[in-house]
């Protein structure tokens, strides 16, 4: 009955995609809790668009995709963070502007370069065929670093996320932790972007956190639940994609959406019972 599982893992490209995807899902879910609570989830969306533009340029120039894209997106993350810190309303509009401009640059560059044209949809909506062995190694190393930093600074991330004024007042360098979160988010988005697609990657940040918040009332539980939901969604999504030949990124997002609906339903039922 589970022969398909065995068969799925026998494809190298699928194993690679699963490995990288799992670590990206985990990192995205952890960072997502903080980003959603700080109302910074727009940044994730903006960064994926910038990532698309940078990736397109890297492809056309023949540069190493990750090595080129990661620094560009990290810089964009720092700029977007400043924008949303200084002025909430204009910050939103500015993120939208930068995001769509980067998207336009990406599409233009890709269509001007001969031969790459056919691949636009795989950049936008993801492809599991793109990962080289070096990519996998780099992804695992960076993804691992994101996870370790998150665990090390978990307590401070909570303090800053919950109440920035208090955190600053008691000597915590809130700006530093915001920068850390933005940087880790940028790295995570780039790592997951080609797999999930530039249009879909930010869902990995938003969905698990919101899903977990339907049912969990402590930060630790929300964080752990988001991580588990994200991992499970990714695995189910990839399996569906393999079995039904649906696009991988979209399948993962749909499973995430189903989890959100299920958790919302349970929350509704629970309040009705009480």
């Amino acid at each position: 009955m589970f022969d398909w599982l065995h068969e799925m893992f026998s494809y190298t490209f699928i194993s690679r995609a699963l490995l990288v995807g799992m670590i990206v899902s985990l990192a995205a879910a952890l960072l997502g809790v903080s980003l959603v609570l700080k109302r910074y989830s727009m940044i994730g969306d903006g960064l994926s668009h910038v990532g698309f533009g940078a990736l397109a340029i890297a492809m056309v120039l023949g540069a190493a995709p990750l090595a080129f894209t990661i620094p560009v997106v990290v810089i964009a993350a720092l700029i977007l963070l400043r924008l949303s810190e200084t002025s909430k309303i204009k910050g939103d509009a500015a993120i939208g502007m930068i995001a769509t401009a980067a998207l336009a640059i990406g599409v233009t560059v890709l269509s001007l370069a001969k031969g790459v044209n056919a691949d636009i949809s795989s950049y936008l909506f993801g492809s599991i065929l793109v990962m080289s062995r070096d990519d996998v190694t780099l992804s695992l190393a960076l993804g691992g670093a994101v996870l370790i930093l998150f665990v090390l600074f978990y307590r401070r991330i909570f303090t800053v996320t919950f109440d920035e004024a208090f955190a600053r007042a008691t000597g915590l360098k809130a700006g530093l932790y915001n920068t850390l979160i933005a940087t880790l988010t940028a790295v995570t988005i780039v790592l997951g972007m080609r797999l999930m697609g530039a249009m879909l990657i930010s869902s990995l940040i938003i969905f698990p956190a919101l899903t977990a918040m339907r049912l969990c009332k402590s930060f630790l539980r929300v964080t752990l639940t988001a991580a588990i939901v994200s991992l499970v969604s990714f695995f189910i999504g990839m399996s569906i994609s393999y079995l039904l030949s649906t696009p991988a990124g979209a399948s993962v997002v749909l499973v995430n959406a189903l989890f959100f609906l299920a958790f919302s339903l349970i929350a509704k039922l629970r309040t009705r019972v009480q």
Binding site: L37, F162, C216, S218, F219, L220, R221, V222
Partner: peptide
Amino acid sequence: YLPQQNLTQRDFPASVKEVVESG
């Protein structure tokens, strides 16, 4: 420091113990 109340954090998931320990 006990800041002036801000109600933007209304739906923040945190237990009492987590909040106290963050001090």
